[in-house]
Design a protein around this nucleic acid. Structure first.
Lengths: 217, 217
DNA sequence: GTCTATATTTTGATAGAC
DNA sequence: GTCTATCAAAATATAGAC
């Protein structure tokens, strides 16, 4: 029973492999975060993981494959999701937690995971360079983020809380841009920049309290 | 008279040197813009400039020295400055061209110089990585940009045109962040993102017409 | 100022034993 | 699955002729 179980994912003959992969991705994540993709070497990642270069390459056939594994790893990343629950008091009729409050809470929580911010800040900019293996990933990611936030701002507008003259799609692209830009500044000067505050200030400009000054229909 | 003129800067024995340096920086600028710093090689830059690697290294002793030369080259960059003059009609009593109009005009003009945007987008993110030679440069650059825009927003507030509740320093950091972030999105999707429009939309939220709704004293 | 030639490291990748 | 050994290519940098 313990030999040749092709469907085994979490245990069995592939258990060690899965654990190794996780371990390698952990170290790659750390190194890509602090040095970027190009300047990171597989040798060093392997060394940090306590294995040989060849062993690493047995699990990830190429450097590019490892990068993609790191980028998609974030789906596992917990944290930052529960932190928003605290501010759920002013939840409106629709969502348990208003998306803007959730966004600010996530930005605040991210500051406690500097690696994650650095990873995306560094790689998303690197990804725009010629032939970078992460290009497609970030292209899709931006599309997805903009689409998601556009829908959120449209919902806000339906609730009559979007400031007059604000275009949901424009606000979506802007909030993504502001978020990423302020995080980069934060990486340079963590003691002077507060990403969550900047996001909060922007959202306060765009979203008005339900029965307040000019909001679109 | 043509031998050993130590003070000669623009001509004389150093004329060729200056011309070569300019030529090398041109190619390095192009390559750093499209590939980033790490992935660019001195050999290729030299090749693009039509000279040997050793010749390049005779003019720039190290790759880092070349990077700094490229980063500081932008001071020579013309363009984008005059484009703002068109909108000078609604110039107020203080400046010939309102700073926000100038900012939007520059963003629009920048779209015609993709290399410049790419250079700063890619390198400013790369610069946050460990031991990157451009780190100090960008640290100072962000400080300078924030300080400059903070002063501008304070001036706007003195004119009673700053929306109530807006903090000049926060707005300064935010506008820098928004600008840089939206430019990165533009690099990924030039046909869908319009950096100048996003900047304009943000400034319209922050700056109100002189005798309008709630503005700070 | 410009070149050829070379030194020294480091890279990602492969071969093959165990 | 993990290792040692090696490869082939590319990097920055240096030495020295002209």
């Amino acid at each position: 029973m313990d030999t040749d179980s092709p469907a085994g994912r979490a245990r069995g003959p592939y258990a060690k492999s899965a654990e190794r992969r996780r371990q390698i991705v952990d170290e790659a994540y750390r190194m890509f975060s602090t040095r970027g993709y190009q300047a990171s070497s597989l040798r060093e990642i392997a060394g940090a993981a306590g294995i040989s270069l060849s062993n690493l390459q047995h699990h990830f056939a190429s450097k590019e494959e490892l990068l993609l594994a790191v980028l998609e790893r974030r789906d596992e990343t917990p944290a930052a999701e529960t932190a928003a629950a605290d501010t759920a008091e002013n939840a409106d009729e629709n969502a348990a937690v208003p998306f803007d409050a959730a966004m600010v809470a996530r930005a605040a929580a991210n500051e406690r995971i500097p690696g994650l911010i650095a990873l995306y800040s560094v790689l998303s900019a690197e990804g725009v360079t010629d032939g970078h293996p992460g290009r497609e990933f970030f292209l899709r990611r931006y599309d997805s983020l903009r689409a998601g936030y556009t829908a959120e701002f449209e919902e806000v507008r339906r609730q009559g809380r979007l400031r007059s003259g604000v275009d949901p799609a424009m606000a979506a692209a802007s909030v993504v841009a502001l978020w990423e830009g302020i995080q980069l500044q934060w990486l340079y000067a963590p003691d002077r920049i507060h990403a969550a505050d900047a996001l909060r200030a922007y959202l306060d400009l765009v979203i008005v309290s339900a029965d307040d000054e000019g909001a679109d229909a």
